[in-house]
Structure formats: C-alpha cells, structure tokens
C-alpha cells in the first residue's frame, strides 16, 4: 500500500490504542452491566452503596419518645397526633449529640400550612381542618401564645 494511505492509518490506530489505554485506567473496575439489561443497568456498582449509606436525618417519633416521653404521649392523645415531631421541631439527625438542641419552628406560617382558610368546596380535604383567616385572626401574633401545639384543645395558661 502507498505511504500516504498507511500514515494516517497508523495515526488512527494509535488514537484507538490511546483511547483504550485511557479507558482502562479511568473506568472503575466495578463499572458494567449489573442487572437485567444493558439499557437500564449499565453503571458503577458501588454507587448503589453510596446512596444506601446516605445519612438519615429524620429519625421519627420512636427516637423522641426515648427521652421526651411526657411530651410525645401528650401529643399522641391530641388532635395533632398525626403530625410527626420533626415536622415542627426539625430533623433530629444525631440529637442530642449533634445538634444539641433542635431549632423549633413556632412561626405563624407553620400553623397556617394547614389552618389558613382557603375558599374551596367541601370535597377538598383541607376543609376538614378548623380554618382561620390569617388576616383577621389576631394578625401579627404567634399562634403558640394562645394555643398549645401539643394539644390544640388546651389554651396556654
């Protein structure tokens, strides 16, 4: 074959060899088809464990009851029992070590998530919750000044 044909051929072959070499060192050993099909399961296997080992931050009421038994039980017998502790108190993470205390949300906006009056037909689930008009019902003051969030039937004394 003529030289002017061979020379670019060597360049192309060299490029392919370089690509394979780079690929050999760059692609992790556990990269491949891990599952039913090439189409959906072509990935780095250890990434599944990366996601499995992600930190859990919301620990649930079962953690709270270990120390705050009184509060959890009072709350469990109230109309607010369906609300998880961490919805208002914030995620426990590694409490009591880190954070030592949780950032409790006592804002008016928190209560209004459910209790703000929306003028919707009764088929909307929202209408089964006692509504208030935030612009007329003591605007500016915090709900917890009068209402006990752990037991909304009680007023704060």
């Amino acid at each position: 074959m003529k030289n002017h044909v061979l020379r670019p051929l060597w360049v192309v072959l060299g490029a392919i060899a370089l690509l394979l070499l780079v690929r050999y060192f760059m692609v992790p050993a556990d990269f491949g088809v891990h599952g039913e099909s090439f189409k959906l399961s072509f990935h780095r296997l250890s990434n599944v464990d990366d996601w499995r080992n992600f930190t859990v931050k919301y620990k649930g009421n079962t953690l709270c009851i270990e120390c705050h038994e009184e509060n959890v039980e009072a709350h469990a017998n109230s109309a607010h029992a369906i609300i998880q502790c961490e919805n208002c108190h914030g995620p426990a993470e590694n409490h009591p070590d880190n954070p030592e205390s949780l950032a409790l949300d006592t804002s008016r906006e928190l209560c209004l998530r459910c209790h703000a009056d929306l003028p919707y037909p009764s088929s909307t689930a929202r209408n089964q919750i006692p509504p208030i008009d935030p612009n007329k019902h003591n605007p500016g003051s915090a709900c917890v000044q009068c209402h006990n969030p752990h037991n909304p039937e009680l007023e704060v004394g």
Binding site: Q84, E86, N87, T124, R126
Partner: peptide, 10 residues
C-alpha cells in the same frame, strides 16, 4: 392531601 407542604420540607 391538604397542601401543607411538610413532605417537600422534609
């Protein structure tokens, strides 16, 4: 669903 948005926050 009542649109409280606690799911989004969490």
């Amino acid at each position: 669903c009542v649109g409280c948005g606690f799911c989004v926050k969490a």
